[in-house]
């Protein structure tokens, strides 16, 4: 059952990745990265159970803490240096 969950999370990651590639706005990319980060936390947690190595939980915890700071940094940056055109960054 962990394997199925792992695969489902991977699918979600793949779709988020597609969104990060497409954009089109800066915010879409941030959204995708944020989603990717949350799913990474989940993936590591579930994978720890899949391989019976629950000490992976420490890594998941680090991500849960740091992903937030990353997103805040990105937002702060975008506010301070607004992108050339808000509609699309390409």
């Amino acid at each position: 059952m962990f394997a199925v969950t792992c695969l489902a999370i991977l699918i979600v990651m793949g779709i988020a990745l597609a969104r990060a590639f497409i954009g089109p706005t800066v915010y879409d990319r941030i959204l995708a990265v944020n989603m990717f980060g949350t799913k990474t936390v989940l993936f590591i947690a579930v994978y720890g159970f899949l391989t019976e190595r629950p000490e992976f939980m420490d890594i998941a915890l680090v991500y849960a803490l740091i992903n937030f700071v990353g997103v805040i940094a990105v937002l702060k940056f975008v506010e301070r240096f607004p992108p050339p055109s808000a509609q699309s960054d390409e």
Partner: peptide
């Protein structure tokens, strides 16, 4: 460059 930073985060 911004997109690159985001993608390298991923």
């Amino acid at each position: 460059l911004f997109a690159i930073v985001m993608l390298s985060g991923i």
